[in-house]
Structures are given as C-alpha cells and as structure tokens.
Design a protein around this nucleic acid. Sequence first.
DNA 1: TTGTAAGCGTTATCAA
DNA 2: TTGATAACGCTTACAA
Lengths: 337, 337
Amino acid sequence: MEESPGRTVRMRDVARAAQVSTMTVSRALNTPERVSPEVRQRVAEAVQAVGYVPNRLAGSLSSRRSNMVGLVLPSIENSLFAATVKGVSDVLRRAGHHLMIAESGYGPEAEEAAIRGFLEQRVAGLILHDTLHTEEAVRLIRRAGVPVVENGTLTPTPLDMVVSYSNREAARAMTRHLARLGYRRIALVTLPAAANQRSRDRQAGYRAALAELRRAVDPALMLEMPPGLASGAEALLRLMDRPRRPDAVFFAGDVLAVGAVLECQRRGWSVPGDVAIAAFDNIDLLAHLNPPVTTLRLPRHEIGVRSAEMLLERLSGRQTGPAAVDLRFEIIQRAST
Amino acid sequence: MEESPGRTVRMRDVARAAQVSTMTVSRALNTPERVSPEVRQRVAEAVQAVGYVPNRLAGSLSSRRSNMVGLVLPSIENSLFAATVKGVSDVLRRAGHHLMIAESGYGPEAEEAAIRGFLEQRVAGLILHDTLHTEEAVRLIRRAGVPVVENGTLTPTPLDMVVSYSNREAARAMTRHLARLGYRRIALVTLPAAANQRSRDRQAGYRAALAELRRAVDPALMLEMPPGLASGAEALLRLMDRPRRPDAVFFAGDVLAVGAVLECQRRGWSVPGDVAIAAFDNIDLLAHLNPPVTTLRLPRHEIGVRSAEMLLERLSGRQTGPAAVDLRFEIIQRAST
DNA sequence: TTGTAAGCGTTATCAA
DNA sequence: TTGATAACGCTTACAA
C-alpha cells in the first residue's frame, strides 16, 4: 500500500523479496519458461508486493532492443490518417510495442527533425507517410540501420519497405469509371502538387486515363486547391464558370468533394444532373451526403496494420530485405455520378 | 560519408575525435554555455565528422529525466481529439519533448494498461483524456510521482492537474440558449452515459437548465445513442416519432447532429421550421452544412496547448501543486436554430 | 535452473 | 573550464 513517490523500486528489490538474483527476476519476467514454476510464482508475488514497474529505458539500453516505433505523419489533424494510426496502434499494442507520433507538416526538414528525434530515442523502427526525404534523413536512417515502412504512395525508390495503394492507378480507375458512365468533360481537382507526390501521382493517373481514352487533357479542367471544405466549394464554382463547363468533377483530395456537394445544395444544382461529383477517399460522410458521393475505398486501416506487421516481422528477424505491398482500392459507385 | 549500419557511434567516439573527455562532450551538447567556445566548436565538428546521434535512453537512465510525454485518448480515430493532439504536439516539440500516444477505447482497464506501459518507458508526464481510472492506475501514477493532466471534463476529484471546459456548463448554456430562442420542447441526445463522465455532465447541465426554467424533464426527450452519422439520423427519427414531438433537438456528442441534418434533407424537413438542431462541437463541417448548424465552440486546441504547457512548467520545477484550468466555450448561433 | 560479472551509453559528483 | 569515476537499472555471456 505504499503510494508515496519515494525511491524507485528496482529489480534488485524484487530479487531481494523473492530471495533470488536479479537475473532470475529478469528471466521470470521476460522468459518465464526458463524459470522453475515455483520461483516464477515467488517472483510474481514479490513484484506485486514491492510494486515493481520495469524500467524499459535500462532494459533497452542493455539489450540494445527497443519496443518503440516512430510514426511520422504529414498532419496530425487530418482525420484521413486516423484509420492508419489506429491500424498501427492496434498491431503494436498486441505485440507489446509503443507508438510515438510526430508531424512533418512543414516539409522534409520537419520530417528530418522528427526522424532524428526518434532515432535518438532508439526506436526499433519507423513508419513514414511521406516518401520525400532530405538527404540527411536518408543518411541517418541508413546509419541507424532501423527498418522503415513508407506509406504515402507506391514510390519507385523506397528506402526499405513500402505499404500503400497506387495513387496513380486509383486516379486512373476513377477517371475511366467516369468516362464509362458517359461523362465527356471530366475535371480534376487535387491538392497543390509541388511538394506532394500523392497529388502528382493522381494527376498522372488522370492524364493516363484520358490518354488511353484518346481524349485531350484540357488544362482548364485541372485545378490545384488547398485542403478544406470552402476550398472544394470554390473549386467547383471556378470550374462551372469556365466557358466550357465540365460535366463531372473528380475531387482527388481531402474533403474537397464534400465542400463541392454542399455548394451544389446551396445553389440548387442537381448532382449529377448539372454536374457529377466524385471523391477520392472513403470518409463516412460521403455515404450520408445528399446525394451520396461516388468515391474510392482506400485501404487506410489495412495500410496501418500491414505496416506495423511488416515492421514487427522484420524485427523478429524472420522477414528480411525490402518489400513492396500494393494494397487494393475499390470504386464505390453512388448517386452522385 | 559512412552510411553502413555498423557499430554505433557513441559519445566516446566524439570525445576522441575532439580530443576531450565524454563529460566535455556531454556539456557541449547539453549546456554549451559551460564550455569554452573553442572546445564547443571542436565538439560540434567532431559530432558532424563521426555522425553522432545521442542515445536518449542512456541519457535518461543516467539523469533520471525523460523527454517523453504519454497521451491517452479514448479513441485515436475520433477526429475531435485531433485538435488537442496537435496542440500538445506543437508545444512539446518546441520544448524538445516527444509524444507517445495510446488508446483507452475499451475502458479503464485499457487505460491502465496504457498508463503502465508509459510508466515503464519512464515518461516525464501523462495527459489523460478520461477522468475515470482504475484504482491500480491511480496507485501506479502516485507511486511514479509523475505529473498528470486530465482533460475530459472539469472533474471535482482530479488526480493532479485538470485542463478542460465544463461539459455541464456548456450543455446548460446551450439548453438555455435554445429556450431563449423560444423552443418549448427541447430534446437531448448524448452518447451512452454509463461509462462516460462527459455525457453525464452534459445531461446534468441540460437538467439544470430546465430546472432553472421551471420546466419538467420529459424522459421521452432524453436519448442515448452510440456515436456515428447513422446514429444521429436514427435518434432524430425516433424523437420525431414521439407522440409529443420536440421542437428542438440538442445533439451533445460526436457527429450526431450532422447525421440528423442530413436526414432532414432527405425527408424534406425544414430546419429549423420543422425541428431545430443544435450540436456540441465546432467541427468545420457544421458551418458548411445546409443549414449551417448552431453549436458550441470548444477550446479543443487550447486544451492541448495548456495541458502540455502546464506539464512542462511542472517539469521545469517552477509550477508546483495541483491546478485546475477552466477554459471557456462559446455558443455559435447559426441558421439551424 | 540459477547466479556472477561485465557491460549498455550516458550524466552526477567531486576533484583538479 | 575540464576530467576521472561511479552510478543509472537492466541484460548478455558465461559459469556453476
């Protein structure tokens, strides 16, 4: 019943209480099968009695193994990543690992700082959403020799392992889907592509689809907008203001499509009558909007699960060498197209 | 240019390269002002030359200080917490601290497991969203002697520090606001209150407001629903099916209000003509819905910022003793009421 | 199955 | 201002 924050309880205290050496305590805790049942029991009781909480700092320092994984996301606030984080977190927890999270929102330099911080903490592995890194970040990772999973897109030049879907193929598939439905002038709205490989891949997929369909790319129908609901509304208005309007708009980013549908409601425009609208991500809301919005089902959660699993497998020493996992997406056709 | 993951570079290697002792390297890195400029420079160059990445595990073990903070959230997927996490993360990063995140979604036992894990990692402090903890969790925290901030609601029995707004007062204010607007039969929908102090506080605030208005509480107008858009729609339908319909519904949880508004669109019900709708949280979407939805502006981001700041202040040894910070909320009146 | 001794890579402490 | 030495709390390696 000792609850005052006095001197820390060390393994030595448990050892004394159980009348064994610290090594036996260590074994009883980490590899119980290598300790006699009787002693195991005595140690368990001693742990309870003295209120022992193992010090992983000391354990990791000594064993040169760590149970922490670092995750770097472009933005903690973007709810798109929540499903991925959840997947990572669930798998890690079950394996007794812990998750550290940092943000790279301000670009590769911020990512480098986050990576450096994680390596100082001696994480066992890294999961990076972005696929663009500073040279120094790459050097740090290589020297540290930690396994890394990249998530953002199926980069052709992975650091180590990749788990993602193909942004290019997803955009291509949706563009073709819209064409198949009969839309003739399909517009594309993405987030700013300059520092965003995902946006560039989506634009490439759109272009590829049009090329296959033997349609010219009309630059007036390609727009880059910042993220946000208002931004989606504005993109729609700009496109509908063009001399030659689109009959379908593919919003390949964030919640742009939601903003656009809500703007149509306000204007009294019929969707898909006046303009069809398609989105890029399976956020719940899209299914509940009026009309429900055609979109892609992306394997957000599975990306997290597989990333964590691959990392753990590598750490366990079973899996070795680089690997790329191309997870599947799916088109969800709804009333908006 | 050495990039192969060979032997780790230790402080000793830097010391050798700079021709000083490890203590001098340690000082040059942690308290540069206590080292001569010349030596400081030599050490900096040596760090570069050998590619040294400090080992915080060893540092923390030795100094008995850590730069990690543990954050326990009910759900990683719930985007409501994103703003808080962002606030915490920003403040910690600037102070050179790191964030570990875990989930308590399955109740106090899961929270206890998360807390135990963090304490094993020897975090410097804890931020807990929930205010309901197992006895063992409380004992662990007390023994560890780490500072703790609780966030979920202004609990009257804090473990240590609290940073929150008052769920009770917020619900009370919105209920009174709706009454002032002339609504006579105000319904309340919350998340299940059994294991959720926040829901209970909101119900209490609603009851308090009605009592002050000398109105009876009609149990038929109080509903508890699971989270989700579909759930909000269903709640609305159930309430509108009552013999004596509400003229306003206050959705005090999650995205319930959004689901309800979208259901009204589908049914062709006028909001607020047929029924007024109010929400509890300032998610962007509410401002863009048709009609825009009256809601509360809650200090989500500030909660994160202040929590982290208080923790850091305590760690720096300046602030001591418990503290409660009651952050303000605000009603945002929009067209839905 | 259990124990002894020597680190793991850093910092606190004290001395020069 | 700098350095020598002894921890920090655990695990590896080896021995009994």
